[in-house]
């Protein structure tokens, strides 16, 4: 079921070296955890930048589903449906290109 879910993921500038410079990529996944797993499969290394070793979102990273911070939803188990937009944003910091 999850493989049919197509989600637009917004990539922040400092992580675009993993995506070949792409600011927006399409990835599948039924939950945030599954989505980031698939993102890492497509762009190896990016997952470790977003998640702790235990699979939780790193403290300085905010993940949004349709503009809602998943920390206020169900964390990495937050459900994602077809057409959702997922954003990954570091807590505000110095820039990167």
């Amino acid at each position: 079921m999850s493989t049919t879910t197509n989600v637009l993921v917004l990539i922040p500038a400092p992580l675009r070296r993993y995506t070949g410079g792409e600011a927006k990529v399409n990835v599948s996944g039924a939950t945030v955890a599954e989505l980031i797993g698939n993102l890492d499969a497509a762009y190896p290394g990016i997952g470790d930048r977003i998640l702790e070793n235990d699979g939780e979102i790193r403290r300085f990273v905010n993940v949004f589903v349709n503009g809602n911070n998943v920390r206020k939803l169900d964390g990495v188990t937050t459900a994602i449906k077809d057409g959702d937009e997922v954003g990954i944003v570091p807590a505000m910091a110095g820039g990167a290109r």
Partner: peptide, 19 residues
């Protein structure tokens, strides 16, 4: 400076990837 380009140290810059 931040060890990585993707970081959460507000106000600091990772110089290798910054303007």
């Amino acid at each position: 400076q931040p060890a990585e380009a993707f970081h959460g140290i507000e106000g600091l810059k990772h110089m290798p990837t910054a303007i």
